[in-house]
Amino acid sequence: MLQAENIQFAYDEKTKLQFPDIHCQKGEQWLLLGQSGSGKTTLLHLLGGLMKAQEGHIKIADTDIATLSASQLDHFRGRNIGIIFQKSHFVRALTVEENLVLAQDLAGIKIDRQRIKVLLDRLNIGHKLQAKTDALSIGEQQRVAIARALVNRPKIILADEPTSALDDHNCDEVIRLLEQQAKEEAVTLLIVTHDGRLKNKFDHQIHLQKQL
């Protein structure tokens, strides 16, 4: 489902990053551990098609994303990749529901409010449907972010430090929900983190060496 081979990326001459190969099968859940400076966010952005790798191939659901044009890539990302960030950001002018509708709309899929409602209920924040995102706690925001990543039924979910801003209680809760929902939707999940609290929760692990 997700393959990365011989990935290299250089911000400039001196800082050349090399990454280990990744092979994730459908429905697998992977943890990518690394200290800061190991280039793990860079790798996540490369996998998500937010940046282009200078070397190597990234295949998501049998599509080599390097072959896509810029706008095809935008479209592909919206459709097939759900991304969760360390700190959730939303379009602040919109409510929780509208943010999720926007995600469907931008990906070009049919707007399905029932799906949104069901997802939020499963994440125990169905009652925040009409709230502005600014009014949510960080834990709640992260749960909305999970819903947003899942709403378009993507092939893979990439999560960049999804728990590092959360306290232990929220950390457990968010990871539990993320795991559970990914399983339910049969989505491949790749979590990039340096958060030691997650170490024992996942079987598949990749360790990134410090490179900078």
Partner: peptide, 12 residues
């Protein structure tokens, strides 16, 4: 927010 829109599939 604009970057986010792009992440969610909005083109330039």
């Amino acid at each position: 927010e604009l970057a986010l829109l792009r992440v969610m599939g909005a083109s330039r």
